[in-house]
Amino acid sequence: MHPARKQRLILVIFLVVFSSAAVGFITYAMRNNMDYFYAPSAFAAGEVPFDKRIRAGGCVLPGSVKRAPDSLDVRFAITDGKAELQVLFDKILPDLFAEGEAAVVTGRLLQDGTLRADQVLAKHDENYTPPEVAESMHDKASCAGGAKI
C-alpha cells in the first residue's frame, strides 16, 4: 500500500472513531434531559415508567376540568380516544387551554396512575386569523351574499 493512501486511511478511521465517540458522549450527557412521549393508551397498558420525566398528549376530555376553589390546583383528563389519563397541575394554565382541545403535558407518573404535571402546553390549530382580519372577512362575506364565515 502506498504511504499516502495509508495516511488517508488512518485519517478516515480516526475521524470515524472520533465522531462516533463524540455522538456517544453527547447522547450519554443528554439522557437525563430527554422526555419520552406517551399516549394515554400507553398509560392504561402499563408501558410507562414511574417517577421519570415524561410527556403525554391528547384531547382534554369535556367536563373533566375541576379547579380547586382556594388554590391554582387543577385536575383534568386527557384522552386519545382509547383511554383516559388523569392529570394534576398546580400552576396557571395557558390561555388556549380548553375542554375539547388538544394539550401536551410534561411531568411524572405517580403510583396511583395520575400524571403530576409541571408543564401544560395547549395546542392550537394552524389556521389562526387575527381578530381584526376575521372581523373584516366576516363583514365582507355578510355583505357579499349573506354568508357567514
Score class of each variant (00 low, 15 high):
D112I: 12
H124L: 11
V104L: 08
V105W: 02
Y28K: 08
E47S: 10
L11F: 12
V104Q: 07
D90M: 09
L88E: 07
V48W: 02
Q111G: 00
A117W: 07
T114Q: 05
D90P: 00
L85C: 03
A141M: 14
R116S: 13
A102T: 13
A147Y: 06
V48K: 02
A29R: 10
Q86M: 09
G24E: 10
C143T: 10
F50L: 14
V48G: 04
G63W: 12
A134S: 13
G57R: 05
S142C: 03
A45P: 00
L61D: 04
F25P: 00
R116P: 00
V48Q: 01
T129N: 12
D35Y: 07
L93H: 12
T79F: 04
R53Q: 06
L93G: 07
A42Q: 13
H138A: 14
A102N: 08
V74T: 15
A4F: 11
G113T: 13
R55Y: 01
L85E: 01
V74F: 04
H124N: 07
D35Q: 08
A83D: 01
A45I: 04
D35S: 05
I26Y: 11
C143I: 03
K91M: 11
E101A: 13
C143S: 10
V23C: 11
A147P: 00
F89T: 09
K82W: 02
L110H: 09
M34K: 02
P3R: 15
A42L: 03
V48P: 03
L72V: 01
F76Y: 13
N33K: 06
Y36P: 00
P130W: 15
P69Y: 06
Q119R: 11
G146H: 04
L115H: 06
I78G: 06
R53K: 08
L85D: 00
